[in-house]
Simulated scan of single mutants.
Amino acid sequence: MTAAASQTQRVPFWDNARFACVTLVVIGHGVQRLIADFDGALVLYLVIYAFHMPAFAIISGYFSKAGPPSVKAMRRVLTDIVLPYVIMESIWTLVQFLVEGSSEFNPSQPSWTLWFLLALAIFRLVLPYLALLRWPLLISVVLSVGVGYFANVDSTFSLSRAIGILPFFVLGWKLREGALVDEWLRRPTGSTLIRILAGIVLAAWTAIVIAHRDTFRDVDLRFWFFYSESYHGLGEDVWWAGFVRLGLMALAVLLSAAFLVLLPRGRNWTTALGRRTMVVYLLHSFVLYPIRESGFLQSDAAAQWWVLPVVAFCLALSAALATEPVARLVRPLIEPRPSWLFADGLPPRGGAPRARPTSGAGPRED
């Protein structure tokens, strides 16, 4: 979802992975209203939610830099994350007012999917500091497990959720440092054995969910996958609750790896769409929201018949929102260029920075 580091040539695999992950997000949100009435929807939901946001965080971390932030990097946190968040949160406030009559504008409590934008901002701010430490991945895991014991760390500015999934972001960054992923991508074709094992891993998790669906429903396992509640809020105010989160984090890494291994590495119809996944992520909720709130999908008798049509609709929606015409239409909202906001203006994307018109110095380093 995050913009890749500048490269002379994009790697198709990562664009394919971005689109696959964002499509899982859309499907998960689409079937959520069906899980109370149909076990099949619950199984699909739990299989997806066990790893789809951790996989997103891993990909985001893979393309992140841990060095001291440049002026350009700091500006992009504002223009690519903070400003779109404020704009989309404002739109959400208007939509909720029209649908529910709610008129409260509270940017400290992100609406629905917008939490990930704030999480990305937090990741980018803390990564240079974590990179200074000897064991950044281990420390991020300790933070993630430990934050669950503090009920006062909540969803305000997505803090609890950002800390919760921070290890996946750091893991992605560490993978970029190693040669394992690059070596795998350089192979003409992926190892058949590895793909078979990856398929077995995903199938095994699906089988476990099917076999224990009633238990997982009773313990509200889906809420553990949000990484947003304290253990007390999850109803597990016990000393060993952190080990549950640790186990679920290990499961998420395993499932993410299996999922990514099975994705195509060459160019296909999803490759170009994978360049515009932020558009899909931010806009799909506005399409699904009125459907969810209408109660149209909440019917005991019809729930089982709606799963496949909803999945098909979500696939089509994800593909449609990732097209260039849609991206061009909403670009001012998702990629604002507010030159008036910065003291020395804002150069065009990819362009050279401009000198301050009031100074006699040359162009400033950006």
Rank of each mutant, 00 (worst) to 15 (best):
A5C: 05
A5R: 06
P12H: 04
W14C: 07
F19W: 11
C21P: 00
V26E: 02
V31W: 04
L34N: 01
F38V: 11
L42S: 05
L42Q: 09
Y49E: 06
F51I: 05
G67I: 10
R75K: 13
R76D: 08
T79N: 01
L83K: 01
P84H: 04
E89K: 06
I91W: 03
L98P: 00
S108H: 11
Q109C: 12
Y129L: 15
W135R: 09
W135P: 00
W135K: 10
P136S: 03
L137C: 04
L138K: 01
I139W: 06
S144G: 02
G146Y: 04
F150I: 13
A151S: 14
A151D: 14
F157V: 09
P167L: 06
E177H: 11
A179V: 14
D182S: 13
E183P: 00
W184T: 14
L185D: 04
T206V: 12
A207R: 03
I208C: 07
V209Y: 02
I210W: 11
F216N: 02
D220N: 12
D220M: 15
L221E: 03
W224M: 08
S228K: 11
H232A: 15
E236W: 14
E236P: 00
A241V: 07
R245Y: 08
G247P: 02
V253R: 00
F259L: 05
T271V: 06
P290A: 05
S294L: 07
Q304R: 07
P309R: 02
V311E: 03
C314D: 06
C314T: 03
E324D: 11
V326C: 01
R337Q: 14
P347K: 05
R349V: 15
R349A: 15
A355I: 11
E365W: 11
E365H: 11
